[in-house]
Structures are given as structure tokens and as C-alpha cells.
């Protein structure tokens, strides 16, 4: 797109020798080359707005579909607003309506216990977040703040694990938890992410390296041990990055699919992502229950979107931080 842009303001003016240009162009124009209102700027804004619409439209369409009855869906009505707005799909996905009512509204009659899956997802994600952030923060402290032999080497071993494709270790982990008799328990679903992920150690270590050591030194002189320094000085200072880390850990755990698919297929521990995929797989080819599926999809996205509305800025900042390391 930028190819069609006319050159920036200063360049458009005098075009002769370098020395002439330098003297001819008023310096205040130079500070921000693209600030003035000009067609290229308007075009760029237009593109950005279109991209935002393309991002948001599918989300709206989930809600729109979920608020439509299955019968009006199959007439091919594509109006922007739902033709006959209804709560029936949300009700039947949440199990608030009887099976007969649900079948009448277009359900396949298949069991889909949304609230149970939602609860399971929350349990697993909270377990993972608490364990992972605690233990990774401790490890990050050891890597960033303590002096010991072999520190760099051990850290690089942790880093190298970032390269392992999850599918490579999913099979042995499945075998291990099978041998321990833990399959289809919350413990199994959380275990591989509960203690550590290489990414989290790396992420938190970068923050520990960034904070000043002055407070720690003062505490040391006053005779505080490392556990105390960690808990009473570093954790409070790091509260912002730690909560960012917690959000990231939670979102990643919430979105996890392959591990819970193999380790937690049982209904009692089934998480939302697995439940949604099975709901879709259980649909009849001829007339799938789109409105029910979209109501479930919509509800499945709500917890993350809520989190995002509350913590959006922090999430955005943390992603930017990852880019910079």
C-alpha cells in the first residue's frame, strides 16, 4: 500500500543538492514527518479501520447467529440484525431448557454440559496459573539473582526446551500419567504445565534482571535471607509483571486443546475446548445445529473477552515485551 504514497512533506519540497535541502526545510516539519492530514494518511486510517472491522465482524456474527432460531437460519436470511432475536440457544446450551424444548429448537439431543466444562476449564486453568507462576518466579529468581556454578548452563537447558514440539512429549507424558493411574483427573490435566514452562521461566527472568538490586542489598545487609528477600521485596516490586504472567498463563491454559484431548476425555474432567470440539463432531451431517454451536462458541469466548476488557492494556503491553525480550 505504501508504494502509492507521495513522499513525506520535507522531501516533496526542495529537491536539489543535499546542502540546499538541509537549509531550505524548516526543522519543525521534520520532527514528525507524517502528522499532517493528507490523502495517504487518510488511506492508511481507512485500511486500519477495515482491518479492525474484519477482526470484529466474525465475533459479531457468532452472537448474531446464536441469537437466531434454527428455523429462520435455514431460510437463508442474512440480515445484519437477527430476524427474530431469541435466548433459546443460550438457554439450551446452558441446560436451562428441557431436552424436548431443545430438540424443538434444533438441538441434536446430544448431551452438552456447558456449565460442567466451564467449571472444569476454570479449575484446570487456575491450578496451572497458580503453580506455574509461583514456581517459575522462584526459578527466575534463582537464575537472575543468585550466584552459583553452572547457572548459565542450566538456564540454557531450560531455554532449549522451548524448541521441543509439544507433540514430541505428549505421547510419553500420556504414558507416564497412565502408569501413575492419573489419566482423566484434574491432576493429569494440570501436571505438565503446573510446575514449569520454559517460556514462563524465560519471561520472568527478564523482569527480574530488569529490577534494581538496591533494595535487595539493603535487606541483605540487614540480615534478611533469600526466601525473605524474594517474598517481601521482589514479589511486591514485581507485582505488575507477575500479574501479567498470570494472565498469560491463564489464557494459554484456557486455550489448550491437544493435552486435555488425550489426557482428559472423560466427561467429568472434560474442559471447554475439548467439549466444543466433540459437540461439533457429534453433529449430524445433514442439518448441523449451528445456532446451538454458535451459542456455545460465544459462551466459550466470553471468559477470555471479559478478562481482556478488564486487563486489555496489560495484555497488550506484555505481548510487546515478549517482542523485545
Amino acid at each position: 500500500m505504501s508504494k502509492s504514497h507521495p513522499p513525506a512533506a520535507p522531501a516533496a519540497r526542495g529537491r536539489s543538492t543535499a546542502t540546499q535541502r538541509r537549509s531550505a526545510v524548516p526543522p519543525r516539519r521534520l520532527a514528525v514527518p507524517w502528522r499532517r492530514w493528507r490523502p495517504s494518511r487518510a488511506a492508511a486510517w481507512l485500511i486500519l479501520i477495515v482491518l479492525m472491522l474484519v477482526t470484529l465482524l466474525p465475533f459479531y456474527w457468532i452472537v448474531r447467529t446464536a441469537a437466531t432460531t434454527n428455523s429462520s437460519l435455514f431460510t437463508g436470511d442474512q440480515s445484519f440484525l437477527p430476524p427474530e432475536p431469541t435466548w433459546v440457544n443460550f438457554e439450551r446450551v446452558l441446560g436451562l431448557s428441557s431436552t424436548e424444548e431443545a430438540m424443538a429448537a434444533g438441538g441434536s439431543g446430544a448431551e452438552f454440559d456447558f456449565l460442567l466444562y466451564l467449571r472444569n476449564s476454570v479449575i484446570v486453568s487456575v491450578l496451572i496459573t497458580v503453580g506455574q507462576v509461583t514456581f517459575c518466579a522462584m526459578a527466575a529468581y534463582a537464575f537472575a539473582r543468585l550466584q552459583w556454578r553452572g547457572r548459565e548452563a542450566v538456564f540454557y537447558v531450560f531455554l532449549a526446551a522451548l524448541l521441543i514440539p509439544p507433540v514430541f512429549i505428549v505421547i510419553p507424558n500420556f504414558v507416564l500419567l497412565n502408569q501413575l493411574g492419573l489419566l482423566d483427573t484434574f491432576a493429569a490435566l494440570a501436571a505438565p504445565y503446573f510446575f514449569v514452562t520454559p517460556f514462563m521461566v524465560f519471561f520472568l527472568r527478564q523482569f527480574f534482571l530488569g529490577i534494581s538490586t538496591e533494595m535487595e542489598e539493603a535487606a541483605r545487609i540487614d540480615g534478611a535471607g533469600h526466601p525473605r528477600i524474594f517474598l517481601q521485596i521482589d514479589v511486591p516490586i514485581m507485582s505488575a509483571p507477575l500479574s501479567t504472567a498470570a494472565i498469560l498463563a491463564y489464557v494459554i491454559a484456557w486455550n489448550e486443546f491437544m493435552w486435555p484431548l488425550v489426557a482428559g476425555s472423560d466427561e467429568s474432567v472434560r474442559v471447554l475446548t475439548v467439549g466444543l470440539s466433540l459437540f461439533r463432531a457429534g453433529q449430524p451431517q445433514a442439518g448441523p445445529d449451528w445456532t446451538g454451536l454458535m451459542a456455545a462458541t460465544c459462551l466459550g469466548a466470553v471468559p477470555v473477552i471479559l478478562l481482556f476488557l478488564v486487563m486489555g492494556r496489560r495484555i497488550v503491553d506484555s505481548i510487546q515485551f515478549t517482542g523485545l525480550r
Binding site: L146, R151, I164, I169, P172, N173, P192, F195, V196, F230
Partner: peptide
């Protein structure tokens, strides 16, 4: 101290990354 701080993460790392690999 470092060993102590690394204990839980190291345990998880050995059990769920290194050993399965």
C-alpha cells in the same frame, strides 16, 4: 539456596520435559 528455589520448577522440568523427551 538456588537448588531450593529451583526445586519445584526443576522437578517439573525433569519429569515433564527432559524425561519424556
Amino acid at each position: 539456596v538456588a537448588a531450593l528455589f529451583l526445586l519445584p520448577a526443576g522437578f517439573g522440568f525433569a519429569l515433564f520435559y527432559l524425561w519424556p523427551a
